[in-house]
Simulated scan of single mutants.
Amino acid sequence: MRKIISVFLFAVCAGNLFCASAREKEPEWVSAPKNIYSADQYFSYVGKSKNRAQAELLAVEGIAAVFEQKINSASTVSSRMEKAGSEGKVAVAKVQNFSSKIMRSVDVDSLVGVELKEFWTDGEKNVYALAVLDKQKAAELYSGMIQKNNGEISKLLNVSTDDEFSLENYARIDFAREISCINEKYLSRLSVVDFSKASELEKKTVSSAEINSRLLEIARQIPVYVYFKNDPDGRVQAGCSRILSSFGFRTSQDKNERYSFTGDLEFKQNVPKDKSSVQCRYFFKAVLNDSAFEQNLFALSFDGRSASNTYDNALVRAFSAIDSRAESEFKKFLQNIAVHY
């Protein structure tokens, strides 16, 4: 019996020594990733968590932070950009092999060239993940996208047209501006991984500010007649005129303008049975028309309800809601005008 106990104690001690040894033998990249992935050639970051998915996210966020961008800064992409990207006309960042959690949390533009290289779990069940960005590889990817997009911008800006002051041409130039904004993000990231290459390409890239100046010059030459029926004090007309002006267009009182944005309004007062508030039910209908081609370019129709302690206050809130919705929908329309070139 004594012999068995001795053997058992020896086994326990040996096991404890083995576990201690295993815990101490952590990979060098966990504490000193730059010893494995040279800082001259790579950006590296180690994420640590109790589960692998979170460790991966922390590692990737560490790389994304290098670009001094908000981690979750993904911007809305227009449908025309999505279409151009799917057709291969425009180069947009595409990455694979990342979890949905990472894709929701980190701007895809900051994931270009990033790889999850290593994983390790210590004796306390902490998971370590190593994310690595190969600077040369990333520089090549960003440079390629910028150059491709520069070619597309040049095509858009140099289209020959007899209808320069039209919404179609406005949309064409606006699309070039949208692509240039993407290129500026890529240039910013390229400057982090290869400053000299970024400086070289920046000289060959038309800035969004330059394109926007041209866009505004076109918009100023596009007057739009604005009129609404049943518009108390012309408030909705004034709001829609402001929206058009915010995009650079001129508004007009001349019914014979090529473009017109006209509509009809209806307001109804309602008092609930408990008389806790006064409600204003509103109905909005409008059409943007191009008389040159006898086309309705954009139709907008919606309704809603606002409430307050008096009908006048409820009406003010209704005007505000109409203004906000109309601005949002008109912006979407401008970004999705079909672009031909």
Rank of each mutant, 00 (worst) to 15 (best):
Val30Leu: 07
Ser110Val: 00
Val236Glu: 07
Phe302Met: 02
Glu294Ser: 10
Phe10Tyr: 09
Ser276Met: 06
Tyr282His: 01
Val114Leu: 01
Phe247Pro: 04
Asn149Tyr: 06
Ser260Glu: 13
Asn150Tyr: 01
Glu115Arg: 08
Asn230His: 08
Phe319Val: 03
Asn270Trp: 15
Gln41His: 09
Val159Gly: 01
Phe249Leu: 11
Lys83Phe: 15
Arg189Pro: 00
Ile102Gly: 03
Ser301Leu: 04
Ser208Thr: 04
Ala171Trp: 03
Gly144Lys: 08
Met103Val: 08
Ala74Tyr: 09
Arg317Gly: 09
Gln279Val: 01
Ser208Tyr: 04
Phe333Leu: 10
Phe228Cys: 10
Phe319Met: 15
Ser31Thr: 14
Cys280Ile: 06
Arg317His: 11
His340Ile: 14
Tyr128Glu: 01
Ile173Trp: 02
Trp120Ser: 06
Lys94His: 07
Ala11Asn: 02
Thr251Ser: 12
Thr161Asp: 13
Ser154Cys: 00
Ser86Cys: 05
Leu315Trp: 04
Lys229Cys: 08
Ala318Tyr: 04
Arg258Cys: 08
Val206Leu: 05
Val316Leu: 15
Asp174Tyr: 12
Ile222Cys: 09
Asp109Gln: 04
Cys181Gln: 15
Asn309Lys: 14
Val226Gly: 05
Asp233Phe: 08
Glu184Pro: 01
Ala11Met: 12
Val30Ile: 14
Gly113Asp: 03
Ser199Cys: 00
Ala91Lys: 04
Thr76Ser: 14
Gln295Gly: 03
Leu167Pro: 05
Phe175Val: 03
Leu334Val: 08
Asp109Cys: 02
Ala53Gly: 02
Ala321Ser: 14
Lys148Tyr: 00
Val339Ile: 06
Ser208Phe: 07
Glu115Ser: 12
Arg235Phe: 04
Leu111Cys: 01
Ala65Gln: 13
Phe195Leu: 07
Ser301Ala: 13
Pro232Leu: 11
Val316Glu: 15
Lys89Arg: 09
Arg220Gly: 11
Glu294Leu: 09
Ala299Phe: 01
Asn230Asp: 15
Ala318Glu: 08
Ser245Thr: 12
Ala93Tyr: 04
Lys48Cys: 09
Glu140Asp: 15
Gln147Leu: 08
Ile146Gly: 00
Ser207Arg: 08
Glu82His: 05
Cys240Met: 14
Glu266Gln: 11
Ser160Ala: 14
Arg235Ile: 05
Ala171Phe: 03
Leu315Thr: 03
Lys204Thr: 06
Ala64Arg: 00
Ala53Asn: 11
Arg104Tyr: 06
Gln136Thr: 12
Ser86His: 11
Glu24Cys: 06
Arg235Lys: 15
Arg235Glu: 12
Asp254Cys: 03
Val132Cys: 07
Asn126Thr: 05
Leu300Gln: 09
Val224Thr: 15
Ser241Gln: 15
Lys185Met: 03
Lys70Pro: 10
Arg189Thr: 00
Ala198Asn: 02
Ala176Gly: 07
Ala321Lys: 07
Lys148Asp: 04
Val127Ser: 07
Ala326Tyr: 07
Lys148Trp: 03
Arg281Val: 11
Met103Ser: 14
Ser31Val: 07
Ser246His: 01
Ile146Cys: 01
Leu216Lys: 09
Asn149Phe: 02
Arg250Pro: 03
Gln279Lys: 10
Asn212Asp: 13
Leu133Tyr: 04
Arg281Ile: 15
Arg305Lys: 12
Ser79Ala: 13
Val108Ala: 02
Arg258Pro: 04
Ser79Val: 12
